[in-house]
Amino acid sequence: MTRILAPLRALVGAAAVAGVLAYAAAALLTVADVVGRQISMPVPGVVDLVQLCVLGGAWLVIPYAFLTGAHVGVDLVVDSFPPPVRRTLRIAASLAAVVLLALVLRQSWEAFGMQLMFGDRSQQLGIPILWYWVPLLAGVALSIVASLLTIIDGIKPTVQESAA
């Protein structure tokens, strides 16, 4: 099992690194523009590029937030439930996320197809819309993987408990 799961975890981690690198690129491009325009060498279409880096970066790190359970919730009520109920609710929430993300993946794919058909490009530089959608679609798909991994992790303690 771990032999299949470990590479998937590593993939989510690698996507997160790529996402943070995209943020870093957005920061460096902006700073280059800030400095460049003082000496009449601005970065052309910097707003387009920053939007690309931030959108792409965001979707590449979102799976990591799913994997590490960074998504916040309210523990006020749940804390008073017995552990098996809590575990069941956690799994139910992850399943809801999987269904939601699957629908998002399907419809994002459709929306991407439509924009591709229109030949959409970014407003100033004319960057093909493909560049924006590829990280988005990859991020949604990886978020499904990450949610499934958390479900598997959630079931595991039950096995140990019954064994003990």
Binding site: V20, Y23, A24, A26, A27, T30, V47, V50, Q51, V54, L55, G57, A58, W59, L103, V104, R106, Q107, S108, W109, E110, A111, F112, Y132, W133, L136, V140
Partner: peptide, 27 residues
């Protein structure tokens, strides 16, 4: 309707330029 918002929000909710402050200030 549901199909449209499912395909639209994941892009449009993150796309605004003004949101670039979020990841960069976090960094």
């Amino acid at each position: 309707g549901a199909a449209f918002i499912l395909g639209s929000s994941p892009f449009e909710a993150i796309f605004p330029y003004s949101l670039s402050v979020v990841p960069l200030f976090v960094m």
